[in-house]
Design a protein around this nucleic acid. Structure first.
Lengths: 159, 159
DNA sequence: CGCAAGTGGTTTCTCATGAAACCATCGCGA
DNA sequence: TCGCGATGGTTTCATGAGAAACCACTTGCG
């Protein structure tokens, strides 16, 4: 907030260090999201993500395995989120005829009804966050983030 | 909303959701950093941050309290990091004459010697991450991150 | 068939993080 | 000087995430 540590050329400050800035921004945003979802729906982020994917037209019913791929969450995280959502009656597991080890997950009626509110909140939040950013900046921000992600991943591989 | 054909064009995907992109990028970067510091110095991120600040010319010796402000880390995190660093002999606590509750922390000789390697690694990593980014993009990225941080914080306040 | 290896899912364990409780000391006012 | 609230620091507790062990079922091969 008061980063008045005037960068005197030689001076190094943590607040000007990219990974730090990235982490600060990311935490601020995800705290905001988490708080909003918690307050309005009692949903945690992983749970919300599952809802979002399951409610998305393309993924009518899918296995946990599929969810881990789409959301890039750990399979344990996916499992836990699904368990909670099932207990709350927002999703249901139907037997998977093709493979007895897994179940197919889909939103219940109540789940769909919540989903109809969940998505607008997500979109509204995104819009609010981007308020004050020019359209070009928004696109550029996404682009930079993606490139940074790719870059970091590739550096992690060969080191 | 779930009319499969109409949705497919304007389809919503988690991977295009800003908070998600942000979190992915941030995690990728901090994982990279964490891994590098772990491998070369056996330092965790909070520990590394403390070292960075203490070794910085301006902050010869300071209290934990001062460190929490500069690093924006939790005071518990600061304390734990200091404890570890002290046990490893990288920093030492000298009595604070001005206030008997706290100690003044400073790098030991060994700590300074590590610090001389720590900082170059940080800077090199930052440079590598930014490889492929035009100078303008780098500045813009920082700017966008800061603005997003401020924006998210302000939304969190009044909601 | 029937066993071995692989895979989806679940549980358990470990560790990191932050909140809250706690202790010691300071500093101010009676 | 005494007492009491505030503050630096430490410890304890609760929560969350990931790793690894584990179980159930499937698949492929003898």
């Amino acid at each position: 907030m008061n980063d008045k540590t005037t960068e005197t050329g030689t001076e190094w400050s943590l607040s000007g260090f990219l990974p730090y800035q990235l982490s600060i921004a990311s935490n601020a945003v995800s705290d905001l999201i988490a708080e909003r979802y918690r307050k309005r729906f009692g949903l945690k982020v992983p749970e919300w993500r599952i809802m979002a994917v399951l409610g998305d037209g393309t993924q009518r019913a899918c296995t946990q395995q599929a969810l881990t791929q789409v959301t890039r969450m750990d399979k344990v995280a996916v499992n836990r989120a699904c368990k909670v959502l099932e207990e709350r009656g927002l999703i249901q597991r139907v037997p998977n005829e093709a493979d007895g080890r897994s179940h197919l997950l889909e939103l219940t009626e109540e789940g769909r009804s919540i989903h109809r509110e969940v998505m607008p909140l997500a979109l509204a939040t995104e819009r609010e966050l981007f308020d004050g950013f020019a359209p070009r900046e928004r696109a550029q921000f996404r682009d930079l983030l993606d490139r940074m992600h790719v870059r970091a991943a590739s550096l992690a591989d060969n080191s």
